[in-house]
Design a protein around this nucleic acid. Structure first.
Lengths: 340, 340
DNA sequence: TTGAAAGCGCTAACAC
DNA sequence: GTGTTAGCGCTTTCAA
């Protein structure tokens, strides 16, 4: 007897005076059973508080009611609780919560292509892959194994793949407009080095925006893992090449680094140069001045991802990519008025 | 064949020219096998990238490498993502992460005594029960089923139970000292209504502190779910009965409510009355004035809980209760100097 | 030291 | 319409 439950299908069958197959059918609504037996069996099962053992059931059906979450950006970072970044923790907690509310289990799984993976890793019903990189081995693994998955952010290099949830570019464009102010003014972009949709797509949006305005694009990069000091380093380079009117840093930590470096150089923000970021966090909310940021719809994104994944698990054709709309939070770092 | 893995124990056995039993023994280090066979089998298994199916293994051993987390405070709240409270999300994300780093899976499970529980709920290796209440049915369920569990916060009413992790009371006492200032000055306590260690233990610490100072204890309560408005209501009562020198609100939302109500009444904080809370959050960090708060050691607590739980799962006698030390973050709400 | 076989709890094909 | 039975992949006696 598995520890799971004192009462097995056999106990129910005995008590209801039917075979175990009848119990299985009655409870799963499969096969052909008389309505009478079905009802009686269900009553007995309910009375005995019977619940099918997930392991045994999973062994047969290969479906256990649990999904995995792989955070590729964190796998790349090498640490799963980076300081000054809260978006990942929010995604994790939100997905765990929403999965739970659907009667699912969600678990965080480290890069399953390498080394120690949790025992259940390959027995899960499906996966959410957050921010896959180009030619992602994790995606390849799931493809090879036939494990259903959806991605947060488009899979770069696979435009045909549609089971993904992303962010509406509108907020980014509004942020750029804010930084650019009226007329054709220069805005620099500071992106990360991971080859994922987040960096690629935002760079594209930025370049298009520049083209539309007739200004020369200035793209800088800093490694995600370098955080604030990466932002400071980039700010020194940007500043050496001539201060733009605005700087759009994709990650919050880079943005904070840029702010601090500019301030250290005596550059007044926002009066001389404005700053905005694509990733909100407590740090960007409460820096002085607070940094204008795009606030992702974490709840909506998690919901869309789970909807899509559940559809895929059921074998349904999923309804293409879903875009969630982020909000632009305007803060002092882009306000023309002088700072307190 | 389960979806889990193309390669089963049978494949490995065939390739290694041994029986499946030999493979099982070789890989688990059980039974009596010649070192030669053991090594050969291991080599073949590694070469084939064989990993035992967690479901099938669990069915036999009843151990799947996954643990559950039950947040009793959230079950009581009825919502799993309360606004203005981030400690729960931090715990969830931290435990998920740390579990992952140990090769475990952790999943959030709603009150498993009622209604829909995730299929795996009763097949998990063990549970972390956060803030059990008096005579907690969840604890009773695990006891009855013989499922290993540890608790975050003592199980009220079961002083003999030692598998728990709690908070060192030192920070709370320091907070009270701060509120009380020099001499015997009055401090009111605002606690929640859930009958858990958090409320009970803190009230006791407070009463002892009052006794030691010779001041009359003033204990007020507000329901956890009432959040900020509960704090405001309580502040009105407290104020009507005579403003104390300091108010210690256990939950952050109550503390923020108290602050706002006092300010609405024209009571200057901290000059007339100081405020502190036992639960830090972004709201308490960034209110005006910012509220002095106890910052829990989430990482240390999660680590201790998992250590304890893993010991219990291995069947070891666990090393009694573990106390983690919280830090007191002194902020403007308890600073005697006038506010900006 | 090794292999054969029972069986964990369940589902699904197949008989009756 | 209902019961019998063969496994799912694995661990663990029990014989050889």
């Amino acid at each position: 007897m598995s520890r799971a439950s004192g009462v097995t299908i056999r106990d129910v069958a005995r008590r209801a005076g039917v075979s175990i197959a009848a119990v299985s059918m009655a409870l799963n609504g499969t096969g052909s059973l008389s309505e009478a037996t079905r009802i009686r069996v269900r009553a007995v099962a309910a009375e005995m508080d019977y619940q099918a053992d997930a392991l045994a059931r999973g062994l047969r059906r290969s479906s256990v009611g649990a999904v995995g979450i792989v955070m590729r950006a964190l796998d790349a970072l090498g640490e799963y609780q980076p300081r000054g970044v809260d978006v990942f923790a929010r995604y994790i907690a939100t997905m765990a919560t929403q999965a739970m509310e659907r009667g699912l289990s969600a678990m965080l799984v480290p890069d399953p292509t390498r080394g120690e993976r949790p025992p259940l890793a390959l027995s899960l019903d499906g996966y959410i892959v957050a921010q896959p990189v180009l030619d992602d081995p994790v995606v390849a693994l799931f493809e090879r194994r036939g494990i259903p998955y959806v991605t947060l952010g488009r899979d770069p290099g696979r435009p045909d793949f549609t089971d993904w949830v992303g962010e509406d570019p509108a907020a980014t464009i509004r942020a750029l407009d804010l930084l650019g102010g009226r007329g054709a003014r220069s805005v620099a972009l500071l992106r990360g080095t991971d080859v994922n949709d987040w960096n690629l797509e935002n760079e594209q949006i930025y370049r298009d925006w520049c083209a539309g305005r007739g200004v020369r694009p200035r793209v800088y990069t800093a490694a995600e893992r370098d955080g604030e000091s990466g932002g400071r380093r980039a700010a020194r380079v940007i500043s050496a090449e001539g201060l733009p009117d605005g700087i759009f840093a994709l990650t919050g930590r880079h943005a904070v680094g840029v702010l601090h470096e500019l301030q250290a150089q005596g550059v007044p923000v926002p009066t001389r140069t404005m700053i905005a970021t694509a990733s909100d966090s407590e740090h960007t909310r409460h820096s002085r001045p607070a940094i204008t940021a795009i606030e992702i719809d974490v709840d909506g994104t998690a919901r869309a991802l789970l909807d899509l994944l559940q559809a895929r698990i059921r074998g349904e054709r999923a309804p293409g990519p879903v875009l969630t709309s982020a909000r632009l939070r305007r803060r002092a770092s882009t306000r023309p008025a002088p700072q307190r």
